[in-house]
Simulated assay, not measured.
Amino acid sequence: PPGTGKTTIARLLAKEAGYEFQQLSAVFSGVADLKKAFEQARMRRAAGQATLLFVDEIHRFNRAQQDGFLPFVEEGIVTLVGATTENPSFELNGALLSRAQVYVLKRLDDEALASLLDKAEVHEGRKLPLEPEAREALVALADGDGRYLLTLAETLLNIGAAKPLSTKELGQILQKRSPAYDKDREEHYNLISALHKSIRGSDPDAALYWLARMLGGGEDPLFIARRLIRAAMEDIGEADPLSLLLANAAKDTYDFLGSPEGDLALAQLVVHLAAAPKSNAVYTAFKAAQRAAKETGSLTPPAHIRNAPTKLMKDLGYGKGYAYDHDVEGGFSGQNYFPDGMERRKFYDPKGEGAEARTKERLDRWAEQRKRQK
């Protein structure tokens, strides 16, 4: 994440190892800048000086440019340290990754941020003009970003407050920071995954939190609505079949009202889905049926359930022996509806939760009846 010390670590590595530190930003640099950096590193090497080349936001270089690093890394012209706020598995070439070691930095916790503030005060030789509660609020406002926290601290030290500021006064001086959220990057997928899995795990409180995080970060509410419809199908299914109708109704409500009123429809749906009984039986059954259809796709329906609109078809036995289930006592004939030459298979196995419990009871009763009719 931003503000966790990536550049600082690279500088410390170079200093400790006695390397020349050279920095490039992939945002502002091109092929010409890379060539110049490599040539300078080659000249230093000839003079007995090693180079640590630090490339910030390395994922901004395209695949071809990333390939350009390989010969210089392999030859030892530079020791490459790349920093990225993205998942390197997605954004960097496999060839480059295979020659590197990946270190994952985490957002700074409150203890680390508080330590940074202490060090800033020692460096400046004075205390921040904050009441204890306001100091905690300042740490919370930084949201794990050490660089941002130090920027805020610098602002407060420069205003020359006559007395310690309260939390309210602090809020009036410092603008609220936008949540760290990039709608087309990894965090986008991490948060929607967290929302979906909180619903699957039947935790409405956590699900509401992730919904609020996404909406607060500027996510498209209709993207969220699409995932909620998917959750209603995949994770709740026949345990509460009305959930799918409610999911579509929430989407239509948001479409009709927009924000902020329509956000409440999504929140109501999130609570309903998280609190609903869960079953993925239809989801797994359909997957199994798809596999079976792929394996046996050339088999034809048995003759007794084929349509017979012509005399020739009737003469061939189409529809012969078909039992019309509505005319059978109990409304269940127990006939075979699988293709000839295919053993009966069981795809749908109800979980027995919510409304699916009644479905399971009926299917078990009909299965016993089929056995008796054999």
Rank of each mutant, 00 (worst) to 15 (best):
Y337E: 01
M313K: 03
E356M: 01
R213F: 00
G262H: 13
V328T: 15
D240N: 14
G334F: 08
L246M: 15
R230F: 10
A308N: 10
F286Q: 15
L245I: 15
N248R: 10
G217N: 02
H326K: 15
H304A: 00
D327M: 05
K346N: 01
P277E: 11
P350E: 09
H272N: 11
T284G: 00
S279N: 03
V282D: 01
H304T: 02
A275D: 12
A288S: 15
A281R: 08
D255Q: 12
G330R: 04
L242Y: 09
R230E: 13
A267E: 14
N336F: 06
H304L: 06
M313F: 02
F286K: 04
L266Q: 03
Y348H: 07
S298D: 09
N280R: 04
R230C: 15
A289N: 03
M313W: 01
D220V: 00
R230S: 14
L266W: 14
F256N: 14
N336E: 07
K346H: 02
D315I: 03
R306V: 01
D315L: 10
E219Q: 08
A308H: 06
E353A: 09
R344W: 11
E343C: 07
G330D: 08
G319Q: 07
T310L: 01
E329A: 14
A212T: 04
A249D: 13
S259N: 02
E261V: 10
E329F: 06
G258E: 08
P260V: 12
E295K: 03
F256R: 13
D327Y: 14
D327R: 07
A323K: 08
K320C: 01
A249R: 05
D340R: 06
S279A: 04
T253W: 01
G341L: 03
R213H: 01
N280W: 06
E261R: 13
I236H: 12
G321I: 11
P309T: 11
P260T: 15
A285P: 00
Y337W: 03
G262A: 11
P302T: 05
E353G: 03
A232Q: 10
F338S: 03
I236W: 07
R213W: 04
A276G: 09
V271M: 06
H326Q: 11
E343V: 07
L266R: 11
F286E: 03
A292R: 02
D252I: 15
L269Q: 15
K351R: 14
G258R: 07
G341M: 08
G218S: 07
V270H: 03
G258V: 05
A323D: 09
P309F: 15
